[in-house]
Design a protein around this nucleic acid. Structure first.
Lengths: 207, 207
DNA sequence: TGAGTGATTGATTGATCAGTCAATCTATCC
DNA sequence: GGATAGATTGACTGATCAATCAATCACTCA
């Protein structure tokens, strides 16, 4: 309602932001609601004024971010550019998301995307939609004769997204170096590797 | 000690097997120790006779299986066969493990391998060792001039293992079809895609 | 000014569950 | 047969924590 600057501190936002930090640090199951409240500098009960449950805080975080990603993929797919560019844009978006807010990406991947039980189950539809959209991009490339037609598109989408997620996991676990240039190289390498494996014709050596 | 047939029922094993089913069904955090005991047809307290904690049951399951896999990778690497065959053997082993005991693989992936907090942390060393071994195979292929030298071996290992794990996750989530022939095709496709992307020379079109 | 609305507080409740332990059972050996 | 050791039982304890709620506070508008 009010656009007045400085007016009311947005407690809801503060709680969400605090939750990201706490979930990333301790994990959803291991942290207490009071940890989130403390981190947000807010009373315990206030969380329940804004959210019906601890779980709903996580759901909100996930849906907020995942929605942006789905919209981005749809938009990229509409553009008349080559597959490599489309997949490159998706890889860039996800990796830049990590660069911009590693804690949030950690929470989404660890607590939702990779949690087959609990939350993964709840958001299966959203997750599946991402695979479906990427699969569509692959299918089109196959129809254009750019990608091999004998590889299942869903499968290829899974491989592509899986490779990116695994690299993020590597960063999250501290298994891979994550300097500025590592992130940029990762974008190229994921696209290079996956497209290289999917394309029909041998890549033209430009070196 | 005794090899007498039928003699003593192995309660420890019964508890471990029951735990696999319960963890797969409900998840480690969501299930109660009593669920495991009930599933094993054993009294609550007996679990604590064989294991110091609920957590240690999961640790045991993971280490048992992961150890077999690491040993298998080492063995494959010793053989004087081409990279494709080595990576193919690894993919086969993991996918066959899933075929043979999908619940166990689900538990290992969902509760350990992909759980950056909690258990992933504990077993980081073991997990890292797998990446390292696969990375070594890649490095050798690079030295032999079979794989592109400009791609980080650790990164390639991550991509390879990530693709497999993602496909397993697809099966676990029910996102990909998992008939006999799907499993076999997956082995080929993972190796095909990843090697295709990593190899120097264009793949010889055999079609 | 003061009534009304919604934000904010944190002590309390109620339920859940991991882990303990004293008692009982079974097998084995002298 | 009876003594010892280990296996097995499940009621119980103690701690934890999500969620509730009655009370207080801050702000708006008439």
């Amino acid at each position: 309602m009010s656009t007045r600057a400085k007016a009311v501190p947005d407690r809801r936002r503060a709680i969400l932001d605090a939750a990201v930090r706490v979930f990333a640090r301790q994990g959803f199951h291991a942290c207490r609601v009071s940890d989130i409240a403390d981190e947000a500098g807010v009373a315990y009960g206030l969380l329940y004024h804004y959210f019906p449950s601890k779980e709903e805080v996580l759901n909100t975080l996930f849906l907020e971010r995942w929605g942006v990603m789905l919209e981005m993929i749809r938009e990229v797919d509409r553009k008349p550019v080559p597959v490599r560019e489309k997949l490159g844009a998706i890889a860039s978006f996800i990796i830049d998301s990590y660069r911009h807010d590693p804690d949030l990406m950690k929470v989404i991947i660890v607590e939702v995307t990779r949690a087959a039980n609990s939350f993964g189950q709840t958001h299966l539809g959203q997750i599946r939609e991402a695979y479906r959209l990427i699969g569509e991009i692959v299918t089109k490339a196959q129809q254009e004769g750019i990608f091999k037609a004998d590889i299942d598109a869903e499968f290829a989408a899974m491989t592509f997204y899986g490779a990116i997620e695994q690299v993020l996991t590597g960063w999250i676990f501290g298994l891979l170096p994550q300097g500025e240039e590592d992130l940029e190289r990762a974008k190229q390498m994921v696209v290079e590797t996956v497209c290289g494996g999917l394309e029909c014709s041998p890549p033209i050596s430009s070196a």
